[in-house]
């Protein structure tokens, strides 16, 4: 056993390093191509290093589509959804975990069931509803359908159930109503889970593509992922400006890299992943 230890150590690292290289390859090429000149991106064998770096690809990509506006749209929409979810989910989670009333169990089952519905199935009818409302190509259309989340309610309910009942009783003896308990006891004590919900929601909705694709039709309302696909279409697949396309890819990725650096622990250690059994 001990004699084989160093061999196993080397084997493990060899496998993991190879896997890491494979995983990083697309990201490496994204970055490298974004700094190469237009013809280098077509060369075979490919140029690995962008020498000398063509920084001007970035401003060129930025103005090729109204990316400034799309950046604003993506951020407004994502934060609008997150703010909405944090409020609606914590209210619902409180009701479902700490208040006794008739019909509660049924509501909880309905909320859980919505998690199972593949969201695309609802898109055609939801699109028709929004066109009736005159909401197509507006911020409402991008935000309102997502300000509640079955998953979010489930996640926060698990966290609220962890709060000791004695704390709630103490607050209630002091005359606090349900709303005060939610605001002054539950929310402060569940900050890590609220952060997890916010971070997961950011990743999901900032990257969301299908829904923004169908409910927006003007450049001024498009979000970044939709803008990226517009860029492919306008440059055409044959004469694609790979360097500028990759530059746009990199600046779309930027907010996620920052989020990932700051919030990785909230992404990888969710109560959902620890509670399976």
């Amino acid at each position: 056993m001990t004699a084989r230890q160093p061999l196993r150590f080397l084997g493990t690292h060899a496998v993991l390093l190879l896997a890491s290289a494979l995983i990083l390859a697309p990201l490496f090429w994204m970055l490298s191509l974004s700094l190469q000149n237009a013809s280098a991106a077509f060369s075979f064998p490919p140029h690995f290093l962008p020498l000398p770096p063509h920084w001007l690809n970035y401003p060129a990509a930025w103005v090729s589509e109204p990316f400034g506006r799309m950046y604003v749209n993506s951020i407004v929409v994502t934060f609008g959804i997150i703010a909405g979810q944090l409020v609606t989910c914590s209210m619902a989670a409180y009701a479902l975990s700490r208040i006794e009333f008739k019909g509660k169990r049924a509501v909880f089952l309905v909320v859980l069931a919505t998690m199972m519905v593949p969201v695309q199935i609802t898109f055609i009818p939801a699109f028709l509803i929004l066109s009736r409302l005159g909401w197509i190509d507006t911020y409402q259309a991008l935000i309102v359908p997502f300000v509640a989340s079955g998953f979010g309610v489930f996640l926060l309910r698990q966290a609220f159930l962890q709060v000791p009942q004695a704390l709630i009783d103490a607050a209630r003896i002091d005359g606090a109503g349900h709303w005060t308990v939610l605001r002054a006891v539950m929310v402060p004590l569940s900050k890590p889970t609220l952060t997890t919900l916010a971070v997961l929601s950011f990743v999901f909705h900032y990257n969301d593509f299908f829904w923004p694709l169908i409910v927006t039709n003007s450049n001024s309302m498009r979000t970044l992922p939709v803008g990226l696909t517009m860029m492919i279409m306008s440059t055409g697949t044959g004469g694609t400006q790979w360097n500028q396309l990759m530059a746009a890819d990199v600046f779309t990725l930027m907010p996620l890299i920052i989020l990932f650096a700051l919030g990785q622990r909230y992404l990888t250690q969710t109560p959902l992943t620890t509670g399976i059994k």
């Binding site: 409020v87 609606t88 989910c89 209210m91 619902a92 409180y94 009701a95 479902l96 208040i99 006794e100 009333f101 008739k102 509660k104 509501v107 309905v110 909320v111 919505t114 519905v117 969201v119 199935i121 609802t122 898109f123 055609i124 009818p125 939801a126 509803i129 309102v144 359908p145 997502f146 300000v147 509640a148 079955g150 309610v153 109503g177 349900h178 709303w179 939610l182």
Partner: peptide, 24 residues
């Protein structure tokens, strides 16, 4: 209690009914 409970559930239910269950 029931009033507070349903009031707290209202926003979630309204959105899920309008944009998930209704469309379904």
């Amino acid at each position: 209690d029931a009033r507070a409970g349903w009031l707290m559930l209202a926003p979630t239910l309204a959105v899920l009914l309008s944009f998930v269950i209704g469309p379904l």
